[in-house]
């Protein structure tokens, strides 16, 4: 029964994605069960099935081994009952899938937000214009006062930002649970480690309402910090964030010059 092997491979693949990944993930982040989101899982499975079928049917033997039994069920006059049953099973499966799509649910609609949306070329804060393309953190060059600036940045952080982003910088401050999107996790390699300081400056300065629409500005609870902090304070916080997490900011060619 050559057909069993691909079925087995697909089943193992499914289990790995459904249980294996969350299991490993739960070891990395205790207390969570990081499932593969359904949207991704569907695509994964599509290609697992497609790939398995491909490498099982490249040879004539393999092809016959898989198509043969299926064709047999549909055409062998001796297998009338089996044919009937399998046709019913396939039909019921289809009906089940259709039902999943039309059944009434209270699942919230899926909303997508772009985590790193495109920044504008210039941004206005404190009545001034900043060109994000070339903007650099002016305090980074000040090596003599670096430690002092970092500490002052930390104080700004703990008096303003920490309530959401948390003292572990994991985006889990005392009030994080009430917010969606969750506050940014700065330790993660996917956030500030990917960004230039000018990008971070823009995100802090203009907050949630300053986001373009693909990043759902109506949901973000990030305050418009240039209403509450000074330019220098924001640059200090940025120094602190990179220093505390050990990440270094990205530098574009325009900024390097």
């Amino acid at each position: 029964m050559k057909i069993l092997k691909p079925i087995l491979i697909i089943a193992v693949g499914y289990l790995l994605l459904k249980v294996g990944i969350p299991f490993v993930g739960s070891k990395l982040h205790p207390g969570t069960w990081p499932v593969v989101p359904t949207s991704v899982l569907k695509m994964y499975m599509f290609f697992v099935v497609a790939g398995t079928l491909l490498f099982s049917t490249f040879s004539e033997d393999g092809y016959a081994g898989i198509v043969g039994p299926v064709a047999d069920i549909y055409t062998n006059p001796k297998k009338g009952l089996l044919r009937f049953v399998s046709i019913m099973i396939v039909g019921s499966l289809g009906a089940y899938v259709a039902y999943q799509y039309v059944k009434p649910t209270f699942d919230a609609p899926v909303e997508l937000r772009s985590i790193h949306p495109a920044p504008p070329s210039t941004v206005k804060m404190w009545g001034k214009s900043y060109s994000l393309q070339t903007l650099k953190n002016p305090l980074r060059a000040d090596k003599a006062n670096f430690a002092k600036n970092v500490e002052e940045g930390g104080i700004v952080f703990f008096q303003n930002c920490f309530f959401c982003h948390g003292d572990r910088m994991l985006g889990k401050g005392p009030f994080y649970q009430g917010f969606n999107p969750m506050p940014a996790n700065f330790v993660d390699v996917g956030t500030i480690a990917q960004l230039t300081e000018s990008f971070v400056f823009w995100r802090i300065g203009t907050g949630g309402p300053g986001l373009p629409s693909e990043a759902t500005p109506w949901l973000s609870a990030m305050p418009i910090w240039h209403h509450l902090l000074s330019e220098e304070q924001i640059w200090k916080v940025i120094l602190f964030l990179y220093d505390y997490t050990g990440h270094s900011p990205r530098v574009t060619a325009a900024q390097a010059h």
């Binding site: 046709i87 396939v90 009906a95 089940y96 259709a98 059944k103």
Partner: peptide, 28 residues
């Protein structure tokens, strides 16, 4: 709170039966 959702649940219509049934028929 930030935004959550309110869904005023409609009475379940015939499509819950009709669509799966149609799919079943076509497939069989």
């Amino acid at each position: 709170t930030t935004w959550y959702w309110l869904l005023l649940k409609p009475e379940t219509g015939s499509e819950v039966v009709a669509y799966p049934a149609a799919v079943f028929l076509i497939l069989v």
